[in-house]
Design a protein around this nucleic acid. Structure first.
Lengths: 233, 233
DNA sequence: AGATTGAAAACTGTCAACAGTTTGCAGAAT
DNA sequence: ATTCTGCAAACTGTTGACAGTTTTCAATCT
């Protein structure tokens, strides 16, 4: 039953170019194809065992997501956001995440609050033991949970698109700058505001969290720039 | 010179599928292809004198914009947002436009303030004389100006995408509900806050403006629903 | 040696055709 | 009369090939 069900769902939701889109996106975000580089349609086609048609369709979809850029007669290139664009993205993320916090506080259920507190405790424990490898995926899941639970699919889609673009930022290693404890005290305030069902406070807590992350990124970036100016070219 | 320049720029920025994308988008937003209807690839291809390849690429791009939906083996369908999605979009627009107002207040120049006041006066005049046909494009240009002048291209792209989606909302005639004078007093507060270079006040004024537009839409929608429930199915 | 030119190779843009699926319809069975 | 069945038409998904452009590289010239 499992096998047939799988086959059915696969066939129903297939669309070669759809699969290709996800697969190519994975290759791009995984850094397999370095930013700035041209994407070779033939290479991708042979790699996935298809013709160039579906590959081109997938690339056009990725262009809409802002992950690649299409230059006529030269091909598609992996986009490479400059600092300015990263800042733009952070500003937009700030208000989007704030809205997510507000909406969540308006509709959150007890079970969801429990989940949030669970995440919080696990992250605090990971932070105490300086276990970054454990902290990072928890942090990701925590934010994903909020974005999903706020109940606005439009917001979720836009937010996820921004995060993907941010992954192409060349100095994205700096995005993590800021330390675990600092970030976690902000998480606590977010959860408390949501648990109190206080939309306004939750909105402020959530947007402040991203705004501070932007400030941390900027500080780390300027520091790195001073040490190795070549990074910024 | 004009002709050669035109030809050059056309050739440089060409890409048949890019042109097709804009053209098909125009056909969709213009209501030529009604929401919910399937788009016939062959028809579009013959209409524009191309083969189906570029048409398919353009449709995949439009799918990314959220204007059409792709169902495997059945084709692409014009999306038809429900009220719930329209509400979602308004909520996101609210915070995006608020951010635009804040950013604008932080960076606005005297010339831009003058332009804003110009728009305001023209709109007020049109409102006084109940000239809706003159008011509507002015209102559109006013909002476009703010979105462009705020200096955040990421925000502008997202905002424009949302507005396009809203055009597919079946009861979009209701979007205009609310009256010219009400809306214009809100415009005045927005411009004054920006002119005062008060980011916080500008953010509130701008987001309140969209939030009130959402409320007006909802009121008009529920009223229409009570009169003709079939609209809501 | 370095710059320049020209041809070949590689790659993108587009097309027409074929395979497989869905849809519409006519005829048969109930 | 209505439902079911099976066939035909229409349409989507995908492919391979061809045309035109860009890139690479070697031979030539300064």
């Amino acid at each position: 039953m499992n096998a047939t069900e799988d086959a059915l769902t696969i066939l129903r939701t297939r669309s070669l170019s759809g699969v290709l889109e996800r697969e190519i996106e994975k290759a791009i975000l995984g850094g397999e194809i370095p930013p700035g580089k041209r994407v070779n349609e033939n290479l991708l086609a042979t790699r996935f065992g298809t013709s160039r048609g579906p590959v081109r369709e997938a690339l056009r979809a990725l262009e809409g997501l802002g992950l690649v850029e299409l230059i006529p007669n030269r091909g598609v290139f992996i986009r490479q956001p400059a600092v300015e664009e990263a800042i733009e993205i952070y500003d937009v993320r700030t208000v989007l995440f704030g809205l997510a916090g507000k909406l969540l506080a308006e509709r959150v259920g007890d079970a969801q609050v429990a989940r949030l507190k669970e995440y919080l405790e696990q992250m605090e424990e990971a932070a105490r033991s300086r276990d970054f490898d454990r902290y990072y995926p928890l942090n990701l899941a925590f934010h994903e949970f909020i974005i999903d639970a706020c109940g606005n699919a439009t917001l979720a889609a836009q937010y996820r698109g921004l995060v993907k673009k941010l992954h192409l930022f060349r100095a994205r290693s700096l995005v993590q700058g800021g330390g675990l404890e600092v970030s976690n005290s902000e998480h606590r305030e977010m959860v408390e505001a949501v648990a109190a069902r206080d939309p306004e406070r939750a909105q402020r807590a959530h947007s402040d969290h991203v705004a501070r992350a932007k400030a941390r990124l900027l500080a780390a970036y300027q520091k790195a720039e001073a040490q190795a100016p070549r990074l910024t070219n």
